[in-house]
């Protein structure tokens, strides 16, 4: 069963005219958001996107942009209370999030 978070917008933009169909986005996306159709990539499952940014980072043609971040409520609340960007402290000492990969 494919789990998806709430419906609606995702911070993922794709410019089809820059795409050369190299398949890198399909290769790195952990949630099957992209597929190659007719020699070019296309978004086929936007709501599966978790905004990890792997596709944008690895697109050699700059066709994809993602405002990536942490999908972690603890980090977001932490950021709101301190008036900073979402911050879970994962890379510091204590940690409130991040599953084990």
């Amino acid at each position: 069963m494919k789990l998806k978070h709430i419906s609606g917008e995702r911070n993922l933009r794709f410019e089809s005219d820059k795409c050369k169909g190299c398949q890198m986005c399909v290769n790195v996306c952990p949630h099957g958001v992209f597929e190659i159709v007719g020699g070019k990539a296309g978004i086929v499952d936007l709501e599966a996107c978790m905004e990890c940014g792997a596709c944008a980072k690895n697109c050699p043609f700059g066709a994809i942009s993602v405002k990536s971040g942490v999908g972690c409520a603890y980090a977001i609340i932490n950021g709101m209370l301190k008036g900073t960007a979402p911050n879970c402290g994962c890379s510091d000492s204590s940690s409130g999030c991040c599953g084990e990969k």
Binding site: V70, G71, G99
Partner: peptide, 14 residues
């Protein structure tokens, strides 16, 4: 809080 341990939540949706 469990959103942080999952593998599919985006920042915008959270």
């Amino acid at each position: 809080n469990f959103t942080g341990a999952t593998t599919y939540t985006a920042e915008s949706t959270t």
